[in-house]
Amino acid sequence: MTRFPEGFLWGAATAAHQVEGGNVGNHYWEWEHDPHGPFAEPSGDTCDHYHRWAEDLDLLAAAGLTAYRFSLEWSRIEPEEGEISRAALDHYRRMVAGCRDRGLAPVVTLAHFTMPRWMARDGGWTGPKAGDRFARFTETVLPVVADAGYVCTVNEPNLMACMPVLAATAARGERVGGLPRPDQETAEALLELHRRARTVLRDGGAPPSGLTLVGQEFLAEDGAVEEMAAHRAAMEDQFLAAAADDDFVGLQVYSCARIGPDGPVAPPDDLRTLADMEYRPGALGAAVRRAAEVLPGTPLLITENGIATADDAQRVAYTEGALRSLHAAMADGADVRGYLHWSLLDNFEWFAGYRPTFGLVAVDRSTFRRTPKPSLAWLGRVARANALGAEA
């Protein structure tokens, strides 16, 4: 058997806007109802996780998993600037307590892509007030995250900084060839928000905090080694450098980035998943090795890893391959503290709508009935054994 370290966390992840439903107060709700926008469909009620979270945590715990990552919806907590919803704060406090009651370590994300509409109208993430606003929001939720296991500040700032180009591509209906280089102004603004939040969390005695990043296995195509290195520096290295003082770094790894002389190269059609990513389980280990090399003293947490597929047997095969590559990287010295699968539920996948299914649990969007897939039981057996090889 391939054993993992004692105390290694095994879990699954979600994000508020993708599962809660009815998040009418954030800028994504407004954006996805724009008739000229890039979204395949609006989010609507999505999985109604806001009301059914206890049922979902029961499924997670019963399977044998030990951690749950979820995000706070800022627009519920602060629907208008300066107006704090005590009911929303209580809701998320109950979720943290519900995790603990079930033996699940709560991994709480402060900002997972969405912001309140009032903030979007007044400069958004790059506005002059953004740092103060995010610091104030972080201070507001200190009582919520006080009993968390880990706190993630900003989710995937390296992907968020790519959003202008990605949105334009999606709106034209073009197939994605890969992630473009991030907009530098947006990247720097998001990293400043992360630093501001990190300071508030530390001053407030919060649990370990860090940002989460898209991690990829970077591959040079047609001899484009220098282009690949430049792309990796913009997309990854500057963000890892900014995280050097974090308590941990969350890595969110799905696939590789093939970079040719003219930039990102689209994956081959026969390896393309429902999320237009290349099927490459070993990318997880490669991304972890790279991060451990750049930040040798910083613990890592796999805050997302998964595959968009309608074939659950393929999900199991992908996850097993990814975990074996992760274990090999850990055996070579990478300090990884846990693995959180994306996603617990089949959910709203942003521009792509509901077509890409990442979940360990299927959700009937008419009745909200949950149907656990065999992959959930499989991952639960891995978690109980804390090893690969005994879960068959």
Score class of each variant (00 low, 15 high):
38 P>W: 08
42 P>T: 02
164 P>I: 05
129 K>M: 13
313 A>F: 05
313 A>V: 03
126 T>R: 07
23 N>E: 04
298 T>N: 00
229 A>K: 10
50 Y>N: 01
379 L>P: 03
187 A>E: 08
10 W>T: 01
27 H>E: 14
92 Y>Q: 10
278 E>Q: 15
137 F>P: 09
75 S>N: 14
322 A>M: 02
85 S>V: 04
5 P>Q: 00
377 A>K: 14
25 G>R: 00
164 P>T: 02
24 V>N: 01
24 V>T: 10
26 N>P: 13
89 L>Q: 00
250 G>D: 00
385 A>D: 01
92 Y>F: 09
173 G>F: 05
186 T>H: 10
258 R>S: 14
237 D>Q: 04
333 G>W: 09
60 L>S: 03
63 A>T: 11
33 H>V: 02
344 L>R: 06
99 C>A: 07
357 T>Q: 14
253 V>F: 02
150 Y>K: 02
118 W>T: 06
260 G>M: 06
247 D>C: 12
119 M>R: 11
185 E>R: 10
145 V>M: 08
226 E>R: 14
308 A>E: 12
163 M>L: 06
302 I>Y: 03
35 P>R: 13
68 Y>D: 07
86 R>I: 00
361 V>W: 11
305 N>W: 05
28 Y>I: 15
52 R>K: 07
293 E>V: 00
61 A>M: 02
148 A>W: 12
316 V>K: 02
280 R>F: 11
219 L>G: 09
224 A>G: 01
137 F>K: 07
44 G>Q: 12
111 A>S: 12
89 L>W: 01
269 D>L: 10
207 P>T: 03
3 R>L: 03
50 Y>M: 05
259 I>Y: 08
215 G>P: 10
370 R>M: 05
88 A>K: 04
333 G>D: 11
223 G>W: 11
73 E>G: 12
82 G>N: 08
26 N>Q: 13
22 G>Y: 09
266 A>C: 09
296 P>M: 01
349 E>P: 09
135 A>V: 02
277 M>S: 07
152 C>I: 14
141 V>T: 09
139 E>W: 04
249 V>A: 06
329 A>V: 03
272 R>E: 11
387 A>R: 03
130 A>R: 01
188 E>L: 13
300 L>F: 03
248 F>H: 02
89 L>R: 06
322 A>C: 01
49 H>V: 07
161 A>D: 08
80 E>N: 04
275 A>P: 06
38 P>I: 12
135 A>N: 12
156 E>I: 01
70 F>P: 15
22 G>T: 10
132 D>Q: 13
12 A>D: 08
385 A>W: 03
267 P>Q: 05
125 W>I: 08
337 R>K: 12
379 L>G: 01
76 R>M: 15
20 E>K: 05
10 W>H: 00
126 T>D: 14
159 L>I: 09
35 P>H: 14
356 P>C: 00
23 N>M: 02
234 A>M: 04
212 T>P: 06
70 F>H: 12
332 D>R: 13
390 A>D: 15
185 E>A: 14
291 A>D: 12
232 R>W: 02
282 G>T: 15
353 G>I: 04
214 V>Q: 14
373 K>F: 04
143 P>A: 09
41 E>V: 11
195 R>C: 04
368 F>P: 09
321 G>M: 01
47 C>S: 07
150 Y>T: 02
250 G>I: 01
119 M>K: 00
238 Q>C: 00
70 F>Q: 09
173 G>E: 04
127 G>P: 04
161 A>E: 08
381 R>D: 13
204 G>Q: 10
335 D>N: 15
